[in-house]
Design a protein around this nucleic acid. Structure first.
Lengths: 221, 221
DNA sequence: ATACCGGATACTGCATGCAGAAAATTTCGT
DNA sequence: ACGAAATTTTCTGCATGCAGTATCCGGTAT
């Protein structure tokens, strides 16, 4: 087994694979909030030694995906407040980022965004929720990455990553998937037209909508 | 050595110590921008095995303190733009954070801030630049940590940490240390008075000053 | 019955060995 | 002497062993 793994590693390190596997576990709900994570357990489950698991674990901790108690790690429990807080940060950063992006996006970058947008539409049409969530997340990340100010990008991406789980649940509802697609479509159009004002307005409108949404529906865990 | 270290570890893990040591090396300029970092070298230098060094290295990478090439790690080279970009993010986040802090700071927290402020003043009076930089950084971090919205805190602290090196250089000049102390003094007063408007105004004014400063002086590396 | 103490267990942190890949250096052919 | 091929060196990633500590459990004393 060690042998076979070794070969794959050249493509992607085991610790990165484990990192992804745990994140997927968090997203899918296989790893439940509050649950404790033990090195050996995970090592056995994924068929690797403790080392890459260890390394993945505290990378995840540092990224805010896991809580690290004095001894060991556990799946964090998000409160309603966290969801609200995230919206606050987005509200602060989004206008600046979106402005940058709409101003500076190259044809190639716009093409890539278009492709991702098509992918999420296709996944939705095909009823493949998981694939939709994936593409939707990528679209978001890719958009933020266009921003020249990488510090801004990193702040936003950091947050969005942490809320992948929450968004994954929101997107279980068909209506929310459709709303997200429409939003992304309008956003993409504004970016492609190099119209910062329109892009920022679209983002603001969507944040307002989310505010109202969370006021009515209980925020997801 | 392993024995002795083991005892200390209970207090602080070796990987965390190494993490700090490398960050200090970055701050002091002992580790120069562009320089490559090799596991065994650092392990020997710090008298530990490769494991904690490894672990510290990619924690630093994930935090943005190091660049990770395909093979190995290196000290990142900051551009002038990064300094400007940092100001942009601060300008977006600072008002929200400072508002929160001024509104919600407890007596205990204010006391702690006061203590740190006294410490930086004392260090400056004693001409101990290194100690000043330390206390100054702590004051800043502690201030941001008061914010209820931990996502906001984390974004800001992440950035401030990364610019410790730059600030350390800025603070080599006596006049800049004095300006920083004055700024912190006025900020602290506004927070202690629970006057969000004044606190935010003070931050804004200081950011404006920095803008002007960087326009004249070449931004530090 | 409960509280306290001692041993077993579980789990983490660190050291080290090994293998594989990339870089550097040497050797060989022309 | 120059370029190509081969070998050596360097360095990383992973597995594993060991040691130390916290936790849990059962036994004993009050």
């Amino acid at each position: 087994m060690a042998r076979a793994a070794r070969v794959v590693v050249q493509v992607e390190r085991l610790r990165d694979q484990v990192y992804q596997l745990i994140r997927e576990g968090l997203k899918s709900g296989e790893l439940k909030p509050g649950q404790r994570l033990v090195e050996v357990e995970l090592a056995e489950r994924y068929g690797v030694s403790r080392t890459p698991v260890r390394e993945a674990l505290f990378q995840l901790t540092r990224g805010g995906f896991l809580d690290s108690t004095e001894r060991g790690y556990s799946v964090p429990i998000y409160s309603e407040k966290d969801v609200i807080y995230r919206l606050e940060v987005k509200r602060l950063l989004i206008p600046a980022v979106t402005g940058h992006v709409a101003r500076t996006a190259t044809a190639l970058q716009i093409k890539r965004l278009t492709k991702l947008h098509e992918a999420e539409k296709a996944a939705h049409a095909a009823g493949n929720v998981e694939k939709f969530v994936e593409a939707n997340h990528e679209f978001r990340t890719e958009t933020h990455l266009i921003c020249e100010n990488k510090l801004l990008s990193r702040c936003l991406i950091m947050m969005e990553d942490q809320f992948e789980t929450a968004r994954s649940r929101i997107h279980q509802l068909e209506v929310n998937r459709r709303l997200s697609i429409d939003h992304n479509g309008r956003l993409l159009a504004a970016i492609a037209a190099h119209d910062p004002a329109a892009a920022v307005a679209e983002e603001r409108a969507f944040l307002d909508f989310l505010d109202g949404y969370y006021a009515e529906h209980a925020p997801v865990g």
